[in-house]
Design a protein around this nucleic acid. Structure first.
Lengths: 133, 133
DNA sequence: TATTGTTATACTCTATAACTATA
DNA sequence: TATAGTTATAGAGTATAACAATA
């Protein structure tokens, strides 16, 4: 591992725990992490290309995930009337419901931040913003 | 997304960037994240079950990853003389070399923490430790 | 009988390359 | 000709269930 300093080691633990909690919350709703993540990006409907950019992966990958979510009845894929090559992905009412339940199930970030006082939360935010450059 | 507060949103960004950087560093060495991660756990040789516990996944999964690392010449799998059911996984010299190069390539945590003063690094460590409970 | 690990199988994530439809 | 997305294909991660060898 590349974690020589204390701070680096704590960062590693944080990321590890965060990822596991995210996956566990998704699993409670029988979703993969990738499915839950994509579903969470659909507060506004979006094209496939935009989703690929946001999630940092190939468009063909997005197609696969969206096809599965569509089969589960959680999203729809409509032709964009202004550009008939494009497709707009949107959550169905059931997709909204599942997304809400995922947000409720993923307590890690809330719980973690909630252990700090408001002042400490501000400190943490400032430090991480500076660290992220 | 379940990130209502500022602090939660920054945590999300941090985890996202960390994961991407980890994967990119592994890819530089033609490894998957899981392979790089497992390789990093072998400073001491370990049994398959111990690895499964540490990585939080099924033993059959570890078998797959180890078989691939073995095929790449990065680890060996020897019978434990004290319990012939068990197998001890260890890095080869080439595995050591690749692991060093991965640690050098994964600069994210170092760079990120390095943007903070020593005092700020201590603050961050203390805040995250408290937050993680 | 219980434990360690493997094998068989199946599903998902992911990328690359070739393709279709539209612009 | 260029762009948005899909399809075909392949490699890897992951889990479950059934299995072998050893304790």
């Amino acid at each position: 591992m590349a974690t020589s300093s204390e701070a680096e080691a704590v960062l590693f633990d944080l990321v590890d725990l965060y990822d596991r909690a995210y996956q566990a919350a998704a699993a409670e709703l029988s979703l993969s992490s990738a499915q839950a993540c994509l579903l969470g990006r659909l507060d506004e409907r979006r094209g496939m290309g935009a989703l690929a950019d946001e999630l940092g992966c190939d468009a063909s990958n997005i197609t696969q995930i969206v096809v599965r979510l569509e089969a589960l009845g959680l999203v729809t894929r409509e032709r964009d009337p202004r550009d008939r090559r494009a497709r707009l992905v949107a959550r169905t009412p059931r997709g909204d419901e599942i997304n809400r339940r995922f947000a409720a199930a993923f307590t890690f970030a809330r719980t973690t931040v909630g252990r700090l006082s408001p002042h400490e939360q501000d400190q943490l935010t400032a430090l991480l913003r500076k660290a992220l450059g």
